[in-house]
Computed example of a mutant assay.
Amino acid sequence: MRIDAHQHFWQYHPVKEGWITDDMQVIRRDFMPADLKPLLDKHAFDGCVAVQADQSENETLFLLELAADNDWIKGVVGWLDLQEHDLNEQLAYFKANKHFKGVRHILQAEPKGFMTSNSFVEGVKSVGKHGLTYDILTNETQLDDVLELVRSLPAMPLVIDHISKPDIKKQSFDHWAKYMKILSEYDHVHVKLSGMATEADWQHWTEKDFTIYIDFCLQHFGPQRLMYGSDWPVCLVAGNYDHIISALQSSISSLSLEEQGWIMGKTATKFYNLI
């Protein structure tokens, strides 16, 4: 299957989506399945994975309702409070829903040490014990903590969202590459080739801005641990769906069709157990 492994839906509310700043006004509106389906069809995708954007249980329920009504939403990565005393009961409840594939927390907004605290680490371990995945959303300044988190976890399916957000606009590379190389040594760690345009110069980026990062990920993780994600509709602040997928496909065009197939869907299908 061809899968867009990372996108979002929301019914816009200025408080709930308070992270959408004035310079992101293009995404200050509702984005629902009817908006995405034509884009997926245009690019011959079989489906997508809907990822949480709000840190609430209501968000998880909202995404699961959309998945129930749209069979092309193949999986949901929701949010749960991983430090709650009844976490295992919540995980068991949501795991019973075939669309619930994993959990994410917006770690990029948390202080240093949050993701390495014992209570949080134990929460992520519980996610893995229930046969679920965990999406790691951080920026490059947090990669030391990401490494500590990964080292403390069993071999459960982990994926680093948005290649951990290096500052592409400033061509930041060495610090990011140092930690990503070490993380690549952990076979259960995967990477989403997503969210790069929003870390670049929104108005002036080109496909070449991403080449060094994508090539590095290919070299160290390999196609079978990489997956494409549009990060739609957040990506719209920097380019439309056509621009985003074109940039990625151009960067992997020299790979074999089998290798491209892993990145464009097979990795996500296996990682999230979408079949």
Rank of each mutant, 00 (worst) to 15 (best):
H188P: 01
D187R: 05
W205S: 06
M196K: 05
L248Y: 04
Q224V: 11
K270H: 14
I168H: 11
L183Q: 02
Q224E: 15
I212G: 00
Q219S: 15
S194I: 07
S246H: 15
Y213P: 14
Y213N: 13
G195V: 11
L257H: 10
K270D: 12
Q219H: 15
L226I: 09
F216H: 15
E259K: 15
E258Y: 08
S256R: 06
Y179I: 02
Q171K: 13
R225D: 04
A177V: 01
Q171A: 06
V237N: 08
E185M: 08
A200P: 12
Y213K: 14
D201R: 10
W232V: 05
Y179H: 13
L257F: 04
S246I: 12
G222Y: 14
R225I: 09
T198P: 12
L218T: 15
H188L: 10
S172V: 04
A197Q: 13
K181I: 03
Q219R: 15
N240I: 07
P233S: 14
I263T: 08
L183Y: 01
D209R: 03
W176Y: 07
I182T: 10
W202E: 11
D231Y: 03
S251G: 03
M264Y: 07
S230M: 07
E199R: 05
S251I: 10
V234K: 06
K169M: 00
L255P: 00
Q260M: 05
L255Y: 03
K181R: 04
T267W: 01
S230T: 06
E259S: 12
C235V: 00
Y213G: 14
V234M: 03
F221N: 05
G265S: 08
I214N: 06
C217F: 12
